[in-house]
Design a protein around this nucleic acid. Sequence first.
RNA 1: GCCGCCUUAGCUCAGUUGGUUAGAGCAGCUGUUUUGUAAACAGCAGGUCUUCGGUUCGAGUCCGAAAGGCGGCUCCA
Length: 602
Amino acid sequence: MNDEQLHAMRHSLAHITAAAVKRLWPEAKFGVGPVVENGFYYDIDLGGQKISEADFGKIEKAMRRIVTEAQDFERFTMPIDEAIAWAKESGQPYKEELLNDLKRSGTTVAKDLESEELGTIAEGDAAVSEVSFYKNGDFTDLCRGPHVANTKEVGAFKLMRVAGAYWRGNEKNAQMQRLYGVAFATQEELDKHLEMIEQAKQRDHRKLGKELDLYTGSSLIGAGLPLFTPRGTILRDMINDLAQSYRIKNGYEKVWIPHIAKLDTYKTSGHFEKFPELLRFTSTESGDELALKPVNCPHHTQIFAGRPRSYRELPVKYLETTTVFRDEKSGELGGLNRVRAITQDDSHVFCSEDQIEDVFAELIESAQAMYELLGLKLSLRLSFRDDADNYLGDPKVWENAQNAIHALAEKFGLEYEIGIGEAAIYGPKMDFMATDALGRKTQLATVQLDYALPERFQLEYTAEDGSKKRPIMIHCALLGSIERFLSIYIEHTAGWFPLWAAPEQIRILTINDTVTDYVKEIEEVLRGVVLMEPVKYNELRFTVDDRNESLGKKIREATAWKIPMQLIVGTKDKEAREVSVRTQTGEEKVALNKLAEYLQQL
RNA sequence: GCCGCCUUAGCUCAGUUGGUUAGAGCAGCUGUUUUGUAAACAGCAGGUCUUCGGUUCGAGUCCGAAAGGCGGCUCCA
């Protein structure tokens, strides 16, 4: 089955789903029912009634009946006005709205339509004279097609979930129920897909975060405020050290800023104007209105502005991993991926026009090197502005900045896609999207070019000729948010972190207590080992399991904890002055006097 | 924020149409066992069934609200 056939099949299943729902709830009003990755959905309005997953059985049964009834999909056309009348008569107001949009503009795609016109009744000349319908059995639907010829040709399917969705994606509109299904040509492919979902669940960072004791949440502290345990904190620190190391190599200097600032800061930066509801305030006795910082850049600009600057010290490169606070809507929070206290491995460069390229080059190389080391594949998105008017700064400057980024991507021979409307409020971005083990893409690293904030904060330096010039800012986070990065990384590794990053790197497992003294010697060796790659001064983290338990149990537990290296020590090892090094890939004997060297080389 | 679902011991889960003292495995503690490659054996202890309010002779079970979580929608500097 080719992609087109698969698409037609999934689309046909959307119709069959709607037809089944209509049999069960004749008063159902229908929205749209498109094909999505791996399946389809249909938006349904049952008035006060709600479909729940408990209803899936009977809906699927009705769908199967329609399949066995072997109904032909018949295509026919209707003049647009007749179609509008049909929608009205059949009590399908959502279809009526779509038809009016078609009549007026020739499209039903909400973002291509003038928002004031959306859903209004079309007057005057029609943009489309007739529209196509598909009919199977007694179910007729406005549809461009194509479909399979007959309902019996639909392959294997399963309803997955029901969720709320706003009509036409606008939160001011009515909320409908979106019925999601997956569909494949064969039962085997469907089973394979369901199996993959099951595997994804096994490596879900929320599950592993609990099992590996990395972080926890507290309903007392609040939603979206993860608390990191000792193990999780080690992982955080190691990852952060790695991300910082690339920039420290390139002359970035660490700075430190407080977590609050006067509200005026964000009035100056423009953040208050755009995101007033996301800033949290504290009132103070002094009368200052203070906000928790939602971004770090304004603070960093003030370090730059703290004394006069000469062209000789440019580029000035600041680096800081620090937490920003954003009051995300409650329903948007989830795991570590979306939190309200976001820790960024942030850096800001203040430079002159002719230094932009070098700064970008360093950062692009760093991002590529780091993600290659971590085994995550990066793809590039150039995030440009759209026509909205809430961006800061002169559109001409924007155009220059976007052209500059575009040219840099070309110059470095990077493959990229362009994301319109994905820019930051103050400038265009080069976003690195990581693809995880399950093929999902998430934006992590970001490099942003900014002419707006230096202007707003009146930053300047003295040029060679004695004149005052405005620096350009380059924002960068290689990890993005540490929390979000970890959510991806935990799932990518399934909790099997590399030796250098693992919270507990080595566990010594004893066979009985005759080896106690020998274990002390091994510990002495391990204490002397300090890893220097990829993070410097990384002292070995190990524990000893000398409990009165069977070796089998100790191995089982150490493996469940996904500890990269188990050192098994028994009387035979003691006599041979060796240890048995057990890793995921197998087991080997290493002489005690070679152990330090062995570990250094990994 | 919106729609739907979920919340029982530290963890994973049982708990019949509302009906006696709410169960299990793992973890914990106490013994015994000193163990060579993924769970030794026995005993003990552990719960205001998320919280608050309601219906009822009686609520883990029904209703309402809140908190937290999950799946989406919307949003994401």
